[in-house]
Design a protein around this nucleic acid. Structure first.
Length: 955
DNA sequence: GACCTGCTGCGGCATG
């Protein structure tokens, strides 16, 4: 898009550019450069690494490009002299054209490369090597890892420009790119790096993420446009029955073509659009990732040609794709982050001296407060600082694999690359060596005689050249997929126990919501979930006549509020509870918003409930749930809620947690302890241990593990014994979804009295009600086996009792229990006879001693006559039979002697025959018994036999 | 936990 003159800036910097470049600027018809373009010239010409910060549409591309072209002329650049990296294919095509206009007239060749560029065009770059290449991080990785010929031209690399860097700095794509840049530095030396970003906090942190071992000074160039900004906060005032209609009317009343409406979900985009369509309005379209690509391009073209009135879009239109002149931007519901709000507002065009207006529409009272908080921060120039991932080991593994493919690195050199990358700050050589060892053991890499790393056989089993569509396992991938860090979205196949396919479910829904025992409706029938296998992405069901339990469908609440937004919300709440709200210059409220605010204030006054803050925990009893209201990031409150949930889960599998940044809630019925007492009673070590356990049992862990395990070469279900990978998956789960340190600090505050507990005796507050509306989160159960093992822990149950507790068919439980006896089972069980009732009971092998000594069951392991003799008939799985004669006293006093007499680790069948007294029944029999618990079973058999003998005294 | 993004190189041979 053409950069428009703004008429500000340091006069004279233009003169610093080469005459040929200035000539082109005149040819383009620009009288002046924009402020940001002027400002960027000097630091770039001086050879600094530079972060350019400005909103979309200010000509940032040229701000970076023109000085670089000037230097390219000056230094007679050789191909490939410059790289231009952007995260979107659509942006590449846009920018390629723009760069080409300038560069070709200066005698430089420009090329582009991404997955959609036709082969003919790709092949051209070897014959006619470009001076400037425009590409994605993924395509670049392919060049470095795999394109052995073209790679050599990168020795001439002198300039790298990264566009939209705020989009990737906090993601794994950012880690990937930072590693690639460091590899380029080994190849080409200390090139100059220019990063282009939308408004973000602390741009120097973003800079640091990518500058690696570069020794050039880092400069930040930015413009401030707060004074040009006006934000109107509006409100949809309607009962739920007419909400969508009124929301659509509201949008139309605010429309000024072209208007861009940002929503937080595809569902809402479609919902609003259908309502507008019903009203007979034309020229309004929907744009999100599930809209077919061609249709999206068509919409973008029509917008550019001025043929549309309104686009309702999700994040797809947040990035700098050119859609022409946008007159107005509306956020339907707050964005949760200031950076996102600024980025969205930045999509609207601007005129010299004119104010830029944005509108945020809230749909309930608390959203209204959030919208005000976000608007206030924006107008005050505050914005989130991006978070930089720390030491993601899967990315380290991926980097090693990439370097292995290139065949150019020794282990020492690979470590040197990573140790220069900011994302791997603190990665010790020991940790790295452990990783390399693991990768070698798993045959992902091998080390040659020349000490260089190359890819191993397991790597090529996973990423195949010929995978095509014939994927028979979830872990088989096409070779090209190795180069992207994004996990794929999968669906779960729903099958019956006899293998018939019923349908499919979205993996998000399965992992977050669906649990064993639930009844779902699919293809017009009711099905009970028997097993969920996240490894093979299958849900096993059986048809049931039972009613559908109310399994709610996915209804996310939208994006999470950032810590910055949250602390501003706290201030807004305090002010509202105090009866007066501060509105800075540039922030306006619509009449509807004003009325809603007054209503909220009068409700607060009438019921007089306490204001939530980060220093109070307000306990509120709702009919079903107990809610703890406090203000903290969702991750912090999830940490506390999960600790309580996992503790309650010991007694009730019906437990769940509801989490929002206003507090957390738990079902009253599932709690037989006081959560706050429980939480504040732990020491730090126990707390951290429990958080670790809770994270590993959360649905989030399943997703993280699934996404990272392959680069370590683990293709089967991840187990605890895969220590390195398992622990990394827990660590990343904790980092992304939990916040143990802040949660611990909150508990410390509670203990020391800084955080006060209050009980809301009045009507439940608007905050507690919001928490109660959240979707429940539940512990993840990987399989029925795991579920049974969890239930059995420390106890012994009959199959019938288990079936009752788990609400699953008894026949299924019996089949599973018989399986779980076997040595191959992850959770090993055994059975014994409950001598008091005659029933067969099951327990975990690891609990054998506990159960045998427990108050409830010791009578089944305690034969009255301890000097009697018994013969043990012991078979192993090959049919070898041995027998041994034991005296009960010895079994009780020296069980290890008995164990030693058995020559097999695994007993296939154990029979116990009495040698003392008359016994006419079948000898008790046990199958699949590990040698170590034989003594307990001998005692159980003897107790049973003696009881029968006493009941039938024959002499 | 809402949304979004990405994806073989190279040489040799046949054909028009």
């Amino acid at each position: 898009m053409p950069a428009k003159p703004v008429g500000v800036g340091a006069p004279g910097s233009l003169e610093m550019l080469q005459e040929k470049v200035r000539e082109l600027i005149r040819k383009k018809g620009w009288e002046r450069l924009t402020e940001i373009q002027e400002k960027a010239i000097k630091p770039i010409l001086e050879g600094h690494n530079v972060v350019i910060v400005a909103p979309t549409g200010y000509g940032k591309t040229e701000a970076a490009l023109l000085p670089v072209l000037s230097k390219m002329l000056e230094e007679r650049a050789e191909p490939v002299a410059a790289l231009y990296i952007t995260p979107l294919r659509a942006l590449i095509n846009d920018i390629y054209e723009r760069i080409n206009w300038w560069a070709s007239q200066l005698g430089f060749v420009v090329a582009r490369k991404h997955g959609d560029v036709p082969h003919s065009e790709r092949a051209r770059r070897l014959r006619k090597v470009p001076h400037i290449l425009v590409t994605t991080p993924e395509s670049l990785e392919i060049d470095l890892d795999w394109a052995s010929k073209f790679r050599s031209y990168y020795r001439n690399l002198r300039w790298v420009i990264i566009d939209e860097v705020h989009e990737i700095v906090s993601t794994k794509r950012g880690v990937q790119l930072a590693i690639l840049l460091e590899r380029f530095r080994r190849l080409a030396g200390d090139f100059q790096l220019i990063m282009i970003s939308a408004t973000i906090g602390e741009p120097s942190i973003t800079g640091r993420a990518f500058i690696g071992s570069s020794r050039r000074p880092l400069s930040i160039v930015s413009i401030d446009r707060r004074k040009e900004l006006e934000i109107l906060v509006d409100y949809v005032d309607a009962p739920s029955t007419t909400f969508w209609r009124r929301a659509a009317e509201k949008l139309l009343s605010r429309m000024e073509p072209l208007t861009l409406v940002f929503v937080n979900s595809k569902h809402v985009a479609e919902r609003l659009h259908s309502e507008i369509e019903k009203m007979g309005i034309e020229g309004v379209v929907v744009h999100h990732a599930s809209v077919f690509g061609e249709e999206r391009r068509r919409i973008e073209r029509m917008a550019k040609e001025g043929k549309l009135k309104m686009i309702i879009a999700t994040k797809t239109l947040e990035l700098g794709i050119d859609i022409g002149s946008v007159k107005r931007v509306i956020l339907f519901r707050p964005a949760g982050r200031v950076s996102s709000l600024i980025q969205r507002l930045g999509r609207s065009g601007h005129t010299i001296g004119g104010k830029m207006k944005g509108i945020i529409i809230a749909s309930d009272e608390l959203e209204l407060l959030e919208a005000i908080a976000e608007a206030r921060l924006t107008l005050e120039g505050k914005v989130e600082v991006p978070e930089i991932p720390a030491k993601p080991l899967d990315m380290a593994a991926r980097a090693v694999l990439g370097m292995a493919l290139s065949g150019m690195y020794t282990v020492d050199e690979a470590y040197e690359v990573l140790s220069n990358v900011y994302y791997f700050r603190g990665l010790s050589r020991e940790e790295f060596d452990e990783l390399v060892k693991y990768l070698i053991e798993n045959k992902m890499i091998k080390i040659g005689e020349d000490c260089r790393i190359s890819a191993g056989s397991q790597f090529y089993r996973i990423w195949r050249f010929d995978a095509g569509d014939s994927r028979f396992s979830w872990w088989v991938h096409n070779f090209s997929e190795f180069f992207t860090t994004m996990g794929e979205k999968t669906t779960y196949i729903v099958k019956t126990t006899d293998g018939k396919t019923v349908g499919e479910l979205d993996s998000d829904y399965v992992i977050r919501m669906l649990r064993i025992g639930h009844v779902i409706r699919l293809a017009g029938r009711n099905w009970q979930v028997i097993n969920i296998d996240e490894h093979s992405s299958k849900v096993i069901v059986t048809e049931t006549q039972g009613e559908t339990t109310a399994v709610p469908f996915w209804k996310g609440q939208g994006p999470q509020a950032s810590r910055l937004v949250l602390s501003e919300i706290e201030k807004v709440i305090q002010e509202v509870h105090g009866g007066s709200l501060r509105l800075p210059k540039g922030l306006m409220l619509s009449d509807d918003a004003r009325r809603a605010l007054e209503r909220l204030m009068s409700e607060i006054k009438k019921y007089y409930y306490p204001a939530p803050s980060r220093d109070t925990i307000i306990v509120e009893r709702l009919p079903e749930e107990i809610v703890y209201v406090t203000l903290a990031p969702e991750k912090v409150l999830r940490t506390l809620a999960y600790l309580v949930m996992m503790e309650a889960y010991r007694n009730s599998s019906e437990v769940y947690a509801k989490v929002s940044h206003y507090g957390f809630g738990l079902p009253v019925n599932a709690l037989d302890f006081d959560p706050l007492e429980f939480l504040s009673g732990m020491d730090r070590e126990e707390f951290m241990q429990r958080v670790w356990e809770a994270a590993s049992r959360s649905p989030f862990f399943v997703e993280v593990a699934h996404n990272i395990q392959l680069v370590f070469g683990v293709t089967r279900r991840l187990r605890k014994s895969d220590k390195l990978v398992y622990e990394e998956a827990v660590r990343q789960t904790l980092q992304e979804y939990f916040d143990p340190e802040s949660a611990w600090a909150l508990l410390e505050g509670l203990r020391k009295g800084r955080v006060k507990v209050k009980v809301n005796q009045s009507r439940s507050s608007i905050y507690a009600r919001l928490v109660a509306r959240e979707t429940p989160e539940r512990p993840w159960i990987g399989s029925v086996e795991e579920l049974i093992a969890e239930t059995l822990r420390g106890m012994a149950f009959t199959a019938e009792e288990l079936a009752e507790a788990l609400s699953l068919p008894e026949s299924l439980i019996e089949v599973k229990l018989r399986d779980m006896r076997k040595p191959t089972s992850e959770y090993r069980v055994f059975s014994f006879i409950d001598v008091d009732t005659g029933e067969q009971r099951w327990a975990l092998v690891e609990d054998a001693e506990t159960v045998a000594r427990s108050e409830e069951f010791s009578s089944s392991f305690n034969p009255p006559m301890k000097d009697s003799l018994y013969m043990l008939l012991i078979k192993n799985d090959t049919g070898s039979l041995i027998h041994a004669i034991v005296r009960l006293n010895d079994v009780i006093e020296k069980p290890e002697q008995v164990v030693k007499q058995i020559p097999f680790n695994e007993v296939y069948e154990l029979k116990v025959v009495p040698l003392t007294g008359y016994y006419e029944g079948q000898p008790p029999k046990y199958q699949h018994v590990p040698r170590s618990i034989v003594p307990y079973l001998v005692l159980n058999a003897a107790t049973l036999i003696q009881k029968m003998q006493m009941n039938n005294p024959i002499f």
